[in-house]
């Protein structure tokens, strides 16, 4: 499929530009490593260009990109290469300590909680949407959100309201 092919009135290039940050940020929150996040981001969009399945809406595209990103992250973590290598710990600069505290508190969570928190609080997805994208039961997503919040509360010492 050509890059110029229109999908829901947009070229693939335009779609890539639109969701590039979304995918990269999700990948970074999952991998905690810029290089891996960049690898995954590129791979996701190259797969997107190669993908021949039709999309019914922009939400569908976004959900597809998020699912592929999460799946690619899982593949990375389960690969023998990744198991044998030590991820570089890179400091991500923030302009305020609050942002840094919150962001690194999320990064400290187990991976399955990170995805749920990121999609819920950053992408503003509902529990049902998250369940659909991650192929998890809604109840599972809810319980994971609950446990993740409890962990964050203890890390952030109750300074934040988790609405």
């Amino acid at each position: 499929m050509s890059a110029d092919t229109l999908i829901l009135g947009m070229t693939k290039q335009e779609i890539v530009e639109k969701y590039f940050d979304t995918v990269y940020r999700l990948a970074l929150s999952q991998t905690k490593n810029k290089a891996d996040a960049e690898d995954i981001t590129q791979d996701v969009f190259l797969r997107f260009v190669q993908n021949s399945k039709p999309f019914s809406s922009h939400e569908h595209i976004k959900a597809w990109l998020i699912r592929v990103t999460v799946n690619r992250t899982r593949s990375l973590f389960t690969s023998s290469w990744h198991k044998k290598t030590e991820a570089l710990t890179e400091e991500i600069p923030f302009d305020s300590p609050e942002k840094s505290d919150v962001y690194y508190a999320v990064l400290d969570l187990p991976q399955k909680y990170r995805a749920v928190i990121h999609l819920f609080y950053y992408e503003d997805m509902s529990v049902a949407e998250i369940g659909n994208v991650l192929k998890r039961n809604e109840s599972t997503v809810k319980s994971q959100l609950h446990r993740a919040r409890e962990l964050l509360k203890s890390k952030l010492k109750g300074e934040y309201d988790f609405v």
């Binding site: 590129q42 919150v102 962001y103 609080y121 950053y122 988790f162």
Partner: peptide, 29 residues
Amino acid sequence: MTLFRDTYKAANNDITPDSKLLAQTLSRI
């Protein structure tokens, strides 16, 4: 009390991928 959602969003918005990465990806496409 500060909303966790706002702070987390603001933190993520500070994170931007390398501009070269997007250019490189688009170039390949």
